[in-house]
Amino acid sequence: MSLLEVADLKKSFTAPDGIRRTIIDIPHFAVEARQQVALKGESGSGKTTFLNLLAGILRPDAGRIRLAGSDVASLSESARDRLRATTVGYIFQTFNLLQGHTCLENVLLGMAFGPGEDRARAVALLERVGLRDHLAHRPRQLSTGQQQRVAVARALANRPRLVLADEPTGNLDHASAREALRLIRETCRENDAALLLVSHDRDVLGEFEDVREFAGLNRAVNDRP
């Protein structure tokens, strides 16, 4: 059985003009355990919505999302929170670090709502991403690349089965982007986590063996006027 399996997934929103539009219409999508998949798609094609559906942040209108044996779509909100806290790691384009918290505290937050805080693991993760000497630094005291590395460490803090990365290199320069991507892929492998990375950057996508066209998966993209 696949780690992640999506079937007949649909999600629509009401646009500002009052018309309800279907954003996601994916008949089938699957990711195997420890697999690393890149999703290629243009901005505004619904990739982030798709990731939010997979993470249980959004609830689909129809369809099935089976993640690590649980049907995400049918779970209560509280159960989806729990699943996200224990099974999913999320890396955002804008990092989404809590500015009032130190690097270490940010990583601890990544495990606080799931398996519980494990300071030794948090320190080890920050050491792994090269921030051993920045445990007590606050995000604004770090470079953009360093902030992304904290975000990587946080995403892996809860020992996730699946890491979702939404344009994780979008805010980085070329060199930093390559370094961040290498780090994300390596650490996911080391932690036995599958990786689903969304990007429209050709260089990033070129690093992946398994690149899927989001437009090919999502029928809603092709149906748009």
Partner: peptide
């Protein structure tokens, strides 16, 4: 709001 959204994305429940 963003901070709360981040916490929720990390698995914090509404009641938390």
């Amino acid at each position: 709001r963003r901070e709360i959204a981040i916490l929720r994305a990390l698995g914090a429940r509404r009641r938390t």
